[in-house]
Design a binder for these strands. Structure first.
Lengths: 228, 228
DNA sequence: ACAAAAGTGTTAACCGTACACCCATGA
DNA sequence: TCATGGGTGTACGGTTAACACTTTTGT
């Protein structure tokens, strides 16, 4: 920033906000958490969870705070996606909003909060009409997620610490919106040493039971080869 | 954004800025355009070109305006990279800055402006100390560029409309910071029908002369297979 | 004639993809 | 015993990667 330009600052009237695209995986569907607007304007529509950035708060902290207020969860995995800055994107005032993508484990999530905030999970192929440019925000978050799950181990934030390969594969299938060959998928998993097979089965989803696996962060740090 | 949160807005004192990472290709080097700070504090250091966002201006427009003021160029190719929002990133006031990556053709660039703004081009491996978190901004822009030139035709913004394959290859080599096999590189080029060979040679860089090529946007729109 | 850069094909290794049957268990 | 979902290997085709010589032309 050039000091000569600081002249503009005096008159700047722009509010900075954060909006969160919250992903969850449940019942073999990828879902988004949205809140319902019970007031005018845009009454009846749904929106992302958002809030304004406070003066002494990092942008990332603001996203964390907003998520904590809503969910009671701390240290949620967050990634900045994109900043939306069209001057008329919010018709009521000038708000520039930075979006963050969050991965949460639905089972950790405090369901009381859902009530309190009039929030609801929607499968991503059944997202209702959203206010302002929130639909565009959702789209860019999904596109980013699709790109990133192929090369980084972020899908594990959407699963319990111990998960089965059928679960993991189903998660990839719904995110990528395509069928994946079971054997090819497992071949790749086997190459990634940081995906550790446990001597323990999950018997809840089939008669035979499926082995549980665990993502080992330390092993991953040593050899970050990730390719799915 | 939830209206209930708008309470925070009244007291928000955050200024929104844009900083531009301007890439150019010259003399077989990838370069960055930086401006020199001739005043305290941080005197003598270099910084990115930046400015504050105006009240009725889209964020993207702000980046375009700032670049136009500096370079006299319109319709420069720009991509939003990331928003930097640590509360103390600018020690003098609270400024959140969205970074944009720009590709410019050094030969189009108005060199008088360089003088006027005390600006200078630096090869990316010789970037001087930068103010604040500008070094981090540069790094994320370079990383993004490295990812994107493999799958999208953005490198052509750094070359004249007619360019030779040795030029194009050299550009890829400096951006990716690795040697590329000439024959394999040309094999891939040959597959991309939107890279059109002209019946015209550039004789300025060798005795034999190298055929000129052109990126055909319309052909690219028909078949966007891009892989380098 | 020689120096300097442009241009050109073939082979081997690797990776992605397609594909079908047996296994373990609970009801 | 049967229905359900879990688990396993191989072969083919395409892509990537390695590699060396000939061409053109100005000096």
């Amino acid at each position: 920033m050039n000091k000569a330009n600081r002249i503009y600052k005096e008159i700047q009237q722009i509010t900075l906000a954060v909006d969160c695209i919250i992903f969850g995986f449940n019942d073999y569907k990828l879902e988004l958490l949205l809140i319902h607007r019970g007031f005018q304007p845009e009454r009846g529509k749904w929106s992302l969870i958002g809030g304004f950035v406070q003066n002494n708060e990092d942008l990332d902290e603001a996203a964390n705070r907003i998520l904590f207020n809503l969910s009671g969860l701390e240290n949620i995995y967050l990634e900045q996606v994109k900043t939306f800055g069209k001057s008329n994107r919010d018709p009521f005032e000038r708000v520039v909003s930075t979006t963050y993508s969050a991965m949460i484990l639905k089972s950790d999530y405090n369901e009381d909060k859902v009530e309190e905030y009039d929030a609801k999970w929607f499968p991503i192929d059944q997202v209702p009409e959203l206010i302002f440019d929130h639909r565009e925000m959702v789209n860019s978050a999904i596109n980013r997620l699709r790109r990133r799950i192929r090369s980084t181990p972020i899908a594990f934030y959407l699963l319990p610490q111990k998960f089965t390969l059928p679960q993991l594969q189903a998660l990839y299938e719904v995110i990528l919106n395509e069928d994946i060959d079971k054997r090819n998928f497992r071949k790749k998993i086997a190459q990634m040493k940081f995906l550790v097979k446990l001597n323990e089965k999950d018997m809840s989803e089939s008669r035979k039971g499926a082995y549980l696996y665990r993502f080992d962060k330390i092993l991953y740090e040593k050899d970050k080869y990730f390719n799915l």
